[in-house]
Write a protein that binds this DNA or RNA. Sequence first.
DNA 1: CATGCTTACGGATCACGTAACCATG
DNA 2: CATGGTTACGTGATCCGTAAGCATG
Lengths: 92, 92
Amino acid sequence: MSLAQLEYFVAVAEEGHLTRAAERLHISQPPLTRAVQKLEQELGLPLFERTTRGMRLLPAGQHLLTRAREILRLVESTRQEAAGHSQRSPFK
Amino acid sequence: MSLAQLEYFVAVAEEGHLTRAAERLHISQPPLTRAVQKLEQELGLPLFERTTRGMRLLPAGQHLLTRAREILRLVESTRQEAAGHSQRSPFK
DNA sequence: CATGCTTACGGATCACGTAACCATG
DNA sequence: CATGGTTACGTGATCCGTAAGCATG
């Protein structure tokens, strides 16, 4: 489970659609397909139901969505806080 | 900022020593040196003070340490919860 | 000169994009 | 047959380990 995987997952979950999520992320569809598959394999359970219209979140996926958002929000705050510190003591 | 980077950072911070942290992580020192450097570059601020004895956390590093632990703990719970769900609906 | 961090370098793995493919309504 | 997800395949980037280098007490 990587942060990129979680970002991709959130985008797909929110769009309900690989194609639109790919546009939003500025990547192509195949990496998204693979990222979601890999995440499902790593966690050992399916996250989406594939329809001909798009991707619908399963209950376990719904729960992961809230967790993923928490994790990404925490990471983002951490980056912001570091950016604040870097004003006092820049790196190079 | 990746999860692996954060795990490495926590190990170095806790050991205060690249060599010991490397042993604990079962990798060699060079990847650790590079991971810490890259993290510092990405965040734009130094995290450790290099001494001839080892690595001492700077104040900004102290703060990142608590954040990193929060993030890793959250990721771990998420994995556990997924593992729970996977018992009901296995992936393949 | 022993200890501990860093730089150089080669090789394996990973992740992307393009293109071709498949399923369904 | 249009739409949307998947598989194949080649390439560039990333990350590791071994080996060599450098600083300091």
